[in-house]
């Protein structure tokens, strides 16, 4: 799931201020909390109210898309509607916003959300934790399935750091568990502290730096080999 957090109504309103007819597009894909038709309608009402307080008329329509980041689905769902509107406000994560701008080149799509992270809902309402940062260099096999890149505030490969207190992390005022303590607990449980003790050398950030240009079917080791060849 992609965890998103809605921007403030003033900020969204300022984006669409120059326009009088807007399409508000929810997304039924992986956004959490849900950003679907109901949320789109609520946002439309809030924007209309806001416009009224400024003495303006705002025409809007709420709709939703199965997955905004899928170009074909986005195109078929919104093409019949989009011509009638000056601009689109998307409730999807950044992927959806970028995709709508790509698919509908003649219409500007604005983001209503902050895209926070790839995560899953944890215990309790309103508490999400990042589980994967799509680093392109997965080390979950060494860490008992707990990710120290997404879960550790310092992205350490050889933690924990000195900021761990009673198993909690210094970042967030000791309210979040230290990823490296979780890793240790997990590996200890399976009698795999050999994995914990292992030293992990400096990470190759090329796999996660932006912008990422990826050819999925290319073996990364080829890149290394070619470099080696070039060197020799």
């Amino acid at each position: 799931m992609i965890i998103t957090q809605q921007k403030g109504i003033d900020e969204i309103y300022n984006m669409i201020k120059p326009y009088s007819k807007i399409l508000i597009a929810g997304c039924d894909g992986c956004c959490q909390p849900p950003r679907s038709i109901n949320e789109a309608k609520t946002l439309g009402q809030l924007l209309e109210l806001k416009a009224k307080t400024e003495g303006k008329e705002l025409t809007w329509k709420a709709t939703t898309v199965l997955r905004q980041c899928d170009d074909r689905i986005a195109a078929t769902s919104l093409r019949p509607l989009i011509q009638e509107y000056d601009a689109v406000v998307s409730l999807a994560c950044g992927l959806g916003v970028v995709m709508l701008n790509k698919v509908f080149e003649d219409t500007l799509t604005f983001p209503a959300q902050e895209s926070m992270c790839g995560g899953v809902q944890n215990i309790g309402e309103n508490y999400f934790i990042e589980y994967c940062e799509e680093c392109g260099d997965c080390i979950l096999a060494q860490t008992g399935g707990v990710c120290p890149r997404a879960g550790c505030a310092k992205h350490l490969s050889n933690g924990p750091c000195g900021g761990m207190v009673d198993g909690m992390c210094e970042v967030g005022d000791y309210t979040h568990p230290c990823a490296w303590v979780d890793i240790w607990k997990r590996l200890k449980k399976f009698d795999r502290l050999d994995l914990f003790k292992k030293y992990r050398p400096p990470r190759d950030w090329r796999t996660s730096n932006s912008p990422a240009f990826i050819t999925i079917y290319k073996d990364y080791t080829n890149v290394e080999e070619k470099e080696e060849e070039a060197k020799s």
């Binding site: 310092k154 350490l156 490969s157 750091c161 900021g163 210094e170 970042v171 030293y199 050398p201």
Partner: peptide, 26 residues
């Protein structure tokens, strides 16, 4: 490793941590 920027007086700053302190030892 160093205390995280989130604890300091420039909380909005980006913490680097390209390599960790063990890797720095290497």
């Amino acid at each position: 490793t160093g205390d995280h920027t989130a604890l300091g007086d420039h909380k909005k700053g980006r913490a680097v941590y390209d390599i960790d302190s063990t890797q720095f030892c290497q």
